[in-house]
Design a protein around this nucleic acid. Structure first.
Lengths: 351, 351
DNA sequence: CCTATTAAATGGAACGTTCCAATAAATCAA
DNA sequence: TTGATTTATTGGAACGTTCCATTTAATAGG
């Protein structure tokens, strides 16, 4: 059944008794071919066990149907969700996206981009690795390949960005905590080499200022954007003379870490210490306690990013508008009941 | 800086004042070229903004350096971990793997495989989607492309498989529960269209038989292999006249669901109902309570799979030995303290 | 029946690489 | 000096497609 050397359209042509051009037309679904001929060809294709050689085809055709998705951390469920959102769109557009993971490593990212370019991708959706250098996308841009960034942006870049409204999300969350009666607030996790960090922290600060929290009562703890980072932040914060009573976390992973660390110390998340996450990953809803979080509509952002890159490819441009996605605060249990003044644990039930 | 039409080695040749053959040799790092010539060429490459066209190259070369990883569900952290384990190996072998997600959909899998083949992959590592038909890999095999399955196998296939020792893992976990004093045991989640399911369930059954659990006291609940599935299984089980007191779950996701559902009912996982997971994902250790689970060395399996496919490619064979990875039970809190006879909740502290 | 028109099928020249065989230049042996 | 050998470089024929320009066959118009 399996012939050794791989079959080409010439083999098919011979088998079907037509010319290679005819075979090519059939492969492309051209209507110029008489149905019976097409059928004969299709049978031959089966018989010889043909696999289309896209590399050869791309030599002549303008561009391929391959799109690259470059993700900074696939083991982070948030980015996995994002990737899956994009995938859905690409799939229904008839393109197969190839996913590459950079593991938050700029060098790896460079390699991955190079490889994707060499495959002749038609476009790229990238969530850049932390520490990406300003020039990292120079070659991609020079080659005229459409790129869109998702979730993260580079400080100076002209590349279009699809991102949630981080500032507003953080503002909403912070305002909610203040509304609950908290007066000493912390921002946990993240580091200043991420543009997103500044956006979220900015929202936090603005809410504190607008709603009358003294600068001395807002505490910022940088840290890893992971469970571990959250644990560390909480430890540091609770070791203070006057610890905060609530925290907005850079993302849900950090928040999960905080919940965990609270439990470990025998504190009740929500009642003893309020925590709010960011991103609203699927797990947030099912956590114990369920995590209050800023929903960014992850899948929606992914879909949007995919649509934008598809449109860019189609209209052969390398420019597009940025998109700032709407956010909203999903209140669950982790931010606890309303807080009665400065007592240590509130007892009220809800607002 | 960016010329419109993309540069080829001919442009480089012109720029550097050498022949295209020389450029080609430089690109391949051949030692036949005089160092100063090579330098001149490399400079020209930079100047014209050249991107290597791997498609064109593959037309002449035997096979590409692309390897495909086909994953059934990337949003499942377990498979994400697995993918990352493979990636590490491929990376250090100088190949860039492209990851494709099938979302547990055989039709999607078919498309993805087709696309990967068309790109001319040198090899494939696949964790087949549930419901994959027996013939799904016929064309891949016919084309002589090395494939290895990881974690899952197809009933009849000759394709090599890398998988943990599911039977033994389930046996160990079940024996542990019985050792704790449980006499009415359940197996939660999974469905019989997965070979893994039968392996794990087999281990469960064998342990029950060997250690004197009456057939009537071992309960099997099929269900989704997700948190939701776990929740559903627990609900059904507890609704029984004589409910089980412990469960071995098909995987950690199911186990997490069970822990959640227990809490929702006001039951204390471990003390009131023992649960053991399977796979030992990173999260298991950090859960509340920490989940007892069968560790399968996820990353190690991924690495092994990657090595096997690399070796197959290198030795141009399509055969390899199966590999059954060692497992071990990681005991944490979710299986609770030793159980004193048939009381409803144990009070002892540890063994 | 001949010519115009339409429909279907085809040959051949690209596309950007690799690699073999061949050439040119440099070095060496005598 | 001359031929043999080694070292660098090069032209050209593939590789498997697409697509333009043609050819061939079928149909219609008069």
């Amino acid at each position: 059944m399996a012939s050794r050397a791989k079959a080409t359209i010439l083999d098919i042509a011979r088998q079907a008794g037509v010319s290679k051009s005819t075979v090519s037309l059939v492969l492309q679904g051209s209507g110029l071919i008489r149905p019976e001929t097409a059928l004969k060809v299709r049978k031959a294709i089966e018989d010889v066990g043909y696999v289309y050689n896209r590399g050869a085809a791309n030599l002549r055709k303008a561009h391929s149907n391959v799109i690259g998705m470059v993700i900074n951390d696939l083991t982070n469920p948030f980015f996995a969700e994002l990737a899956v959102g994009m995938e859905r769109v690409f799939q229904s557009a008839g393109v197969v996206p190839f996913i590459a993971n950079t593991a938050e490593n700029p060098v790896r990212q460079e390699e991955v981009l190079k490889s994707l370019m060499e495959q002749g991708v038609a476009g790229l959706v990238v969530s850049p690795a932390r520490g990406t250098t300003p020039g990292a996308f120079r070659r991609v841009e020079a080659a005229g390949v459409p790129v869109v960034f998702v979730m993260r942006r580079l400080p100076e870049s002209r590349i279009p960005v699809i991102t949630p409204d981080n500032h507003r999300g953080a503002y909403l969350a912070t305002a909610h905590l203040i509304g609950k009666g908290h007066r000493r607030l912390a921002f946990f996790g993240g580091s200043s080499d991420l543009v997103v960090y500044h956006e979220r922290l900015g929202g936090f600060r603005e809410a504190c200022e607008a709603l009358g929290i003294a600068p001395a009562d807002r505490l910022v703890f940088e840290g890893e954007t992971s469970r571990k980072g959250g644990i560390a932040c909480l430890e540091t914060a609770l070791a203070m003379a006057a610890p905060p009573t609530a925290a907005l976390c850079f993302n849900d992973a950090v928040a999960f870490g905080v919940l965990l660390a609270l439990r470990k110390r025998g504190l009740e998340p929500g009642a003893d210490f309020a925590v709010v996450g960011f991103d609203d990953v699927a797990e947030a809803e099912h956590y114990m306690p369920a995590l209050t979080s800023v929903s960014v509509n992850t899948a929606g952002l992914g879909e949007r990013a995919a649509h934008v890159v598809l449109k860019m490819i189609q209209s052969r441009t390398t420019r597009a508008e940025d998109h700032i996605g709407a956010v909203n605060l999903v209140v669950r249990e982790s931010c606890g009941p309303d807080r009665k003044e400065h007592g240590c644990a509130g007892m009220g039930d809800a607002a």
